[in-house]
């Protein structure tokens, strides 16, 4: 995802001199090519996330298009008031790029996990929140953020994500993607956990369970229509996200269900209001924190039976 983001940013910056890459001393060698070729559009503002976002807002207020990048946890938690006041309240054209979505920095521990970032920023007016699921979707989301005039937060993973799309598709801010049709249950996911959802769907199909998979790549504005369709056309809904079950995708979808006036079996999968337990590979972290493929399959079976 990071490479897809940087390659896209590189192309955008090459053709549009208003584009700037701002970093807060995070990105090491991944920015090498960008720095070499586009040094005049690159600024490392040091380990000072609040200042970086304030500077980004000021630059945007004067016509620049800054992409301010560092670990999402340091943006959404430490610099939240700068996102709110400098970027959202003033409606400045800043792109906030948070890397390390969820527990993907599995060895680095909870200080580096973005497991409540959506909960912190989802209520902020004027902010578009993108949570792409694969490298191709990162490319599309980055371009869409560039074309959109206003504040955007992009929730990036790291660099090891698999592609989930077999062919090209239309990406539109605020429009989810139904990845496959199904009748028994809809699993609505966001971010790179969708790879696991697709695997779970295949396993469940072997057992005769028909699963619809929906990718919500835009947390805000939410594709209410696509969720309402799932409420009407399938018998149960599960949301899944590498994030706390409070404040993120699960909360957003439950708001739609509650207001739809239709009762439906529903379950949120994510961190159950805990800081992620332990260390390990990313896969191990998901397994040990209630987000493994087995848990997805078991939850589906519990819910529809």
């Amino acid at each position: 995802m990071r490479t897809a983001y940087l390659n896209t940013l590189y192309e955008l910056a090459k053709t549009d001199k208003r584009v700037y890459a701002l970093i807060s001393d995070n990105g090491a060698i991944v920015y090498d090519k960008y720095r070499r070729d586009l040094s005049s559009q690159y600024l490392n503002l040091g380990i000072s996330e609040e200042n970086m976002l304030g500077v980004a807002a000021g630059m945007a207020n004067c016509g620049k298009i800054p992409f301010a990048y560092t670990i999402g946890a340091f943006l959404a938690y430490r610099a939240l008031e700068f996102i709110r006041n400098d970027i959202c309240l003033q409606n400045t054209n800043v792109k906030i790029i948070g890397t390390g979505a969820g527990m993907v920095y599995s060895m680095l521990g909870p200080t580096h996990h973005s497991t409540e970032d959506l909960g912190c920023i989802r209520s902020l007016p004027n902010l578009v929140i993108l949570s792409p699921a694969s490298p191709l979707e990162v490319t599309k989301a980055t371009k869409a953020a560039y074309l959109y005039s206003g504040p955007v937060y992009i929730r990036l993973g790291t660099n090891k994500e698999q592609e989930i799309y077999k062919e090209d598709y239309d990406f539109e801010i605020g429009k989810g993607v139904q990845l496959c049709e199904g009748e028994d249950i809809t699993i609505i996911g966001t971010g790179n956990i969708l790879v696991d959802v697709i695997k779970a769907k295949e396993l469940l199909e072997e057992e005769g369970i028909s699963v619809r998979v929906v990718n919500i790549h835009t947390i805000k504005p939410l594709d209410v229509g696509l969720i309402e369709k799932a409420i009407k056309e399938t018998k149960a809904i599960i949301t899944i996200e590498d994030h706390d079950i409070i404040g993120g995708l699960g909360s957003a979808v439950s708001e739609v269900i509650a207001e739809s006036g239709i009762g439906i079996k529903f379950r949120r999968l994510g961190l159950n209001n805990i800081f992620a337990k332990g260390y390990g590979t990313y896969t191990q972290m998901k397994e040990n924190n209630g987000l493994g493929i087995e848990t997805i399959c078991n939850t589906v079976k519990e819910l529809i039976n």
Partner: peptide
């Protein structure tokens, strides 16, 4: 030129604007 009230915001915002013009 800026929506202020919460303290500690105006300096970085001004730095961003000054920088954009200097560039």
């Amino acid at each position: 030129e800026a929506s202020t009230g919460a303290l500690g915001h105006g300096l970085s915002f001004s730095i961003g604007m000054a920088l954009a013009h200097k560039l």
